[in-house]
Amino acid sequence: MITLPRALCALTLTFAAAAAQAEVVVVMSAKSPVTTLTQAQVSDIFLGKLSTFPQGGQAVPIDLASGAAQRDEFYTKVTGRTAVQLKSYWAKQSFSGKGTAPKAVSGDEEMKKLIAANPNTIGYIEKSSLDASVKAVFAP
């Protein structure tokens, strides 16, 4: 049973990550006309229930790769779902052809680069990573 230590390790990492919670903000390109969004709107966009912004324009959510502490914090605060619940949610959606989980990037820098370049994208980063290329549209 080589898989057990790995599961325990993952469990430990999950708890460790939860203990070191960072402050996360939802961001869009500085060029986007969107100024602010509600928690329900952000939640719907990231769960694939809403594909356009209330002000108009295609909404393309960008995710962090699973396992990132910021990701768990973002989804718990905004959608009320834990990483496990989220995984189950996307299994339901994708295997009935209703939608697929957002594309994921590996970290804040990559996230900012993508978002700054495309006004339709929306993502979330650590508050301290904010710069002039992106703007905060919601703080959970």
């Binding site: 809403l50 356009t52 995984k87 299994a91 339901k92 295997f95 052809g97």
Partner: peptide, 29 residues
């Protein structure tokens, strides 16, 4: 999906007679 609120599917699908017909086969879900 011509608009955000409307979806048309054509082809073979699970008959959605039940609450979880769509993902019944997906044990993980």
């Amino acid at each position: 999906q011509p608009m955000d609120d409307l979806t048309l599917r054509v082809g073979r699908m699970t008959l959605p007679a039940f609450l979880i017909s769509d993902f019944r086969n997906v044990g993980y879900a």
